[in-house]
């Protein structure tokens, strides 16, 4: 079975936990992901239409809290590391290769549309909820923050709530 190639989930969990402790000890913050994508989004918009970003409130607030160059942020470097790490791990376990994964009864175009729409929803939600599964839910649980734990419950609760309606995509 292909699944046996993956690491035991509890071992992976403990390792991830230890990494999270080290992250807090070193940098005083948890892991994250959506923040880096946000930096990319902001930079893209800025490159395409800089007068627009200078005049729009959201970007102004962003620049105020994150400094002038959004790409030179902790999360961007961290996510860059994720790309490297995941690639190396994929090479090691022989999992690298272009592939589009989808449910057994789903057409490719639906999977692509689903990925884009799902991504958009996640991107939007992570802004509203001030963090995604990594930055808010996982790191939030590590420091027992109410905000993080509530967001975590809402993400997984929402997943179970809506899963039924999209079952055709996956099973």
């Amino acid at each position: 079975m292909k699944d046996t190639k993956y690491m035991n989930s509890y071992v992976a969990g403990v390792l991830l936990g230890i990494l999270l402790i080290a992250t807090f000890y070193i940098s005083g913050r948890g892991l994250g992901a959506s923040g880096a994508i946000k930096s990319v989004a902001v930079t893209t918009v800025h490159a395409v239409a800089s007068s627009h970003t200078d005049n729009t409130q959201f970007y102004q607030e962003y620049t105020k809290s994150h400094g002038e160059n959004p790409l030179k942020s902790w999360l961007v470097f961290e996510v860059f590391g994720v790309l490297i790490g995941a690639f190396l791990s994929g090479l090691y376990s022989d999992r690298v290769g272009l592939k589009l994964e989808k449910g057994p009864n789903t057409k490719t175009k639906y999977r692509i549309a689903g990925a884009i729409i799902g991504g958009a929803l996640f991107g939007f939600g992570s802004q509203l909820g001030r963090g995604c599964t990594s930055g808010s839910a996982l790191s939030g649980m590590a420091v027992m923050s109410t905000g993080g734990i509530i967001t975590m419950l809402a993400i997984f609760g929402g997943g179970f709530l809506f899963a039924y309606f999209f079952r055709k995509l996956w099973i």
Partner: peptide, 20 residues
């Protein structure tokens, strides 16, 4: 926190991933 989380949950089942 709650509404953002629910939207992310919806994005999760439709898109199959989270950002990380």
């Amino acid at each position: 926190s709650i509404v953002g989380g629910l939207i992310m949950g919806l994005g999760f089942v439709i898109g199959g991933f989270c950002p990380g």
